[in-house]
Amino acid sequence: MSSDQTLNPETLPEQPERATLEGKNKFLGFWFFLGGETVLFASLFGTYLALNNATNDGPGAEELFGLELVFIMTMLLLTSSLTSVYAMYHMKNNSFSKMQLWLGITVLLGLGFLGCELYEFYHYIHGEGFTLRSSAFGSAFYTLVGFHGGHVTFGLLWIVTLMVRNAKRGLNLYNAPKFYIASLYWHFIDVVWVFIFTVVYLMGVI
């Protein structure tokens, strides 16, 4: 009973991400981690809500935020969420190359999002002179949105690593859970962004 056979069956089971004990453990552990992340982002949101009027005579939300870029970013990230669903769909159908293709599109959309965010920050810092040190509002804004951006960056590195590492050998029961939890992470990033564009941007300019 070598690992090769058990991990590379001829037909993948219905839920390849949870077919092995390791997969089950990863699946559960990662969901729990997301439960913890919920509290982490809630603490950041709470801090932001506590300080969103503390502009210290510097620029505030209403003067700073434009909705066009945020709308584009939202669309990019929402779409990337759908494309990663497509990737998981193809994983379950055991068509590896299609999964890689959709993951690739997800990564491109994610990169687009990240580019917009960097442009936005650059614009605030150099155009408006609004930085982490401008006011408590600035600190809270950059920390909350920056934490999310950090998550996006980490997610991109993660997905790309998985794609490159497994490009040649295809899908098996060892890496299926890895792809699956990476996609869970990506969806969670989108969950957080839904609250960011609602609470920070839309409620900020209202």
């Binding site: 801090t47 009027n53 503390a54 502009t55 210290n56 408590a136 600190s139 920390t143």
Partner: peptide, 12 residues
Amino acid sequence: GSGFFNASMGGN
């Protein structure tokens, strides 16, 4: 140099 807890920057 952020100002979360720095009252002079509006922190709390």
